[in-house]
Write a protein that binds this DNA or RNA. Structure first.
Length: 634
RNA sequence: GGGGUGGUAGUUAAGUCGGUUAUAACGCCGGCCUGUCACGCCGGAGGCCGCGGGUUCGAGUCCCGUCCACCCCGCCA
């Protein structure tokens, strides 16, 4: 074996051999991808991270090499010295290296391998469970190799981009002080301080603000974050953010640097020039903008969430005004809501209950059978909806097959039809009740219908979205600063309490907290939240007023966030920042269906690592050393 | 925390109304084959039917519980 590696160094990656290498003597190292034995001669497709190359073993040419090829099996690790030759008429147009093959002159078995649990190729239908158990095999598959290497290039371009713009990369602690609010924290027992715990940082939020106070001016970090919440296909307990903070900037400045990064990444990774779709627009204020912006309020009204997928229609229409104007329109289910508005119990500008409709145009609605409509009702019920009122629009605009049809007044029907733009054959779907519930149901219903009706391009390797340029970016801006607390009466910070209120909203802080907007923003791509951030509150007076609304007194604020507040008192520059979800960015750039496909060693929906077996129980002695007792029976 | 789907050979699946020896494809092993590239031909091995209880003369199949994975809601920036 000493000859290979010590004397014979690799000269080429298998997957990169081309016609230009013909007649060269090469040394290749790789895995046996496939072996075809013809008795006299043997073909082996040798695989490395760059791809496959066909190696031909001929006993007439090299008996020693042939013996290796004869013995070799799937996934054995080989070294081959050989000569590249033209395959002539025998070329394989399906392979990038298909015009050439390597005639083996000398070969070595570095290692044998057990029969692989599943084939090392794309488009396998093996359970994800099996794939995660043997992740080292899964990662050998070309698609995951590509994803992991693409991710590496994303790190590289991201760091270069920020370095080019004068950003300083700083590491912040992972073991941090527990701060209340937001996501649940993972806790780490502090052995040197019995009974005490560190929290794993859910983000470097407070530290990056303090780096601004420290004067670093522009901060970047590609950083792991930890949140102990329930998981999804697009959520992991540990994930990576591109974390950014800048001093002496406004919202436009932050958008500018992020838009440039995104444009650069799409150019470098996909070769797509996003500026064709999103050319620079210089506003009256002299600021250059690329991506469109939408106010939070408009997004909720039209799409029911703050991350609209604008690649298709099926927008929502708020019909609460029509409901009020027609006193419930004769529909018993709707009348109580109208009465609440009439009596003044509900405000029109901040309604507690609303009535929304969604129109499925006739050409798409025709494809939905009665049974499928009933299934839709099941779909919304699993999200807590009481039902899914619907109506088919008749020739004269009348409602058919509808629970509202019997009693709805003609004027109300007409008003609703007009608001929705309803035409004959259209299907109308309605939802009414508490605002947040209606929005959740309608937003999910819209996405569900979009997929079902084929209005959203398929995600995955077969997707052509990077070719057709269906990359739909959007900034969602100006959300409310506060939302109702769990009790429905108090106020809680919608983002975090250090977000700067909108200039025009300051007078509402005490009068009408629900109306206060703020400098917070999310970057959305094709309905996926890529990241978000805010301009921070650096005025101690306004900060005090915000805490007052939240019911946090000075002592409590000091106890919870003392270190940040102290920092802000010592000369804090105006600052703001953003964090982009790197995993999601990779997912979209590699057009993967799951976050797990862009993370080398991901965890399952219960947060376990099927390969290593984490988390696991520990010995009583280990707990004792940490002064921790488990409540679970061993 | 709630709902849905699934777990049978190494892998992916079939398995009817509860009834003889649990099927198939791919993979694997052996033999043959010098131009294959989804190589081909002949032969063969391979099973705790997720786990634990129950019903029954008899359970892969029915019932109860439990574990695991995936998807959705809640939760989560």
């Amino acid at each position: 074996m000493a000859r290979f590696i010590d004397e014979l160094k690799r000269t080429h990656y298998c997957g990169l051999l081309r016609e230009g290498d013909i007649d060269r003597e090469v040394v290749l190292f790789g895995w046996v991808h496939a072996r075809r034995d013809h008795g006299g001669c043997i073909f082996i497709d040798l695989r490395d991270r760059e791809g496959l190359a066909q190696v031909m073993f001929d006993p007439q040419i090299a008996a020693q090499a042939f013996a290796v090829g004869d013995q070799a099996r799937s996934e054995w690790v080989l070294g081959v010295r050989g000569k590249v030759r033209d395959r002539g008429a025998m070329r394989n147009p399906k392979m990038p290296t298909g015009t050439v093959e390597i005639v083996a002159l000398e070969a070595v078995v570095f290692n044998k391998a057990e029969t692989p649990v599943f084939p090392i190729e794309d488009d396998i239908d093996t359970n994800e469970e099996k794939r995660l158990e043997h992740r080292y095999l899964d990662l050998r598959r070309p698609r995951l190799q590509h994803n992991v290497m693409t991710r590496s290039r994303i790190y590289h371009h991201t760091r270069n981009h920020f370095a080019d713009h004068g950003f300083v990369e700083v590491e912040t602690p992972i073991f941090v002080k527990y701060t209340p609010g937001g996501a649940r924290n993972f806790l780490v027992p502090a052995r040197l301080n019995p009974g005490m715990f560190y929290a794993l940082a859910e983000s470097p939020q407070l530290f990056k603000q303090l780096l601004m106070v420290a004067g670093f001016d522009r901060y970047i970090q590609i950083v792991k974050c930890f949140r102990d919440e329930d998981l999804r296909g697009d959520r992991q307990p540990e994930f990576t953010q591109i974390d950014v903070e800048m001093s002496f900037v406004n919202q436009d400045d932050i958008f500018g640097i992020i838009e440039k990064l995104v444009i650069r990444l799409w150019k470098e990774i996909h070769g797509v020039d996003l500026t064709q779709r999103y050319p620079a627009v210089v506003g009256d204020d002299g600021v250059t903008r690329h991506f469109p912006r939408m106010k939070f309020d408009e997004s909720m009204r039209r799409f029911g969430n703050d991350k609209p997928d604008m690649r298709f229609g099926l927008e929502h229409v708020d019909l609460t005004e029509q409901l009020i104007a027609h006193a419930g329109g004769g529909v018993p289910m709707l009348t109580p809501i109208a009465e609440k508005f009439a009596s003044g119990a509900y405000r029109r500008d901040l309604p507690e209950e609303i009535f929304k409709g969604l129109r499925v145009p006739a050409e798409q609605a025709g494809g939905l059978s009665r049974a499928e409509l009933d299934k839709l009702e099941g779909f919304v019920k699993q999200m807590g909806a009481k039902g899914l009122a619907r109506a088919k629009v008749g020739p004269s605009g009348e409602w058919l097959q509808s629970p509202f049809a019997k009693t709805a007044t003609p004027d109300f029907v007409k008003a609703v039809n007009e608001a929705l733009g309803a035409k004959e054959g259209d299907l109308l779907l309605f939802q009414f009740g508490p605002e947040t519930a209606v929005h959740t149901v309608m937003a999910n219903l819209r996405l569900h219908l979009g997929k079902k009706l084929g209005l959203i391009p398929e995600v995955g390797a077969k997707s052509k979205s990077h070719e057709t340029g269906d990359w739909n970016f959007l900034w969602v801006v100006e959300p409310p600063l506060f939302e109702r607390g769990d009790d429905g009466k108090s106020w809680a910070a919608a983002h975090h309490p250090f977000t700067r209120p909108h200039d025009g909203s300051l007078e509402d802080l005490e009068k009408d907290p629900g109306k206060v907007l703020c400098y917070r923003y999310d970057l959305v791509l094709n309905g996926v939240e890529l990241g978000g951030g805010s301009v921070r509150l650096h005025d101690p007076e306004v900060q005090k007023r915000v805490f007052a609304v939240l019911g946090i007194d000075d002592a409590t604020a000091q106890e919870k966030f003392g270190f940040l507040l102290n920092g802000l008192k010592h000369g804090a520059p105006p600052h703001g920042g953003i964090a982009l979800g790197l995993d999601r960015l990779c997912m979209l750039l590699t057009e993967s269906e799951s976050l797990r496909d862009v993370i080398a060693f991901p965890k399952t929906g219960k947060g376990s690592d099927l390969m290593t077996g984490a988390p696991n129980t520990v010995l009583p002695e280990q707990l004792a050393e940490l002064k921790v007792r488990s409540l679970v029976e061993g």
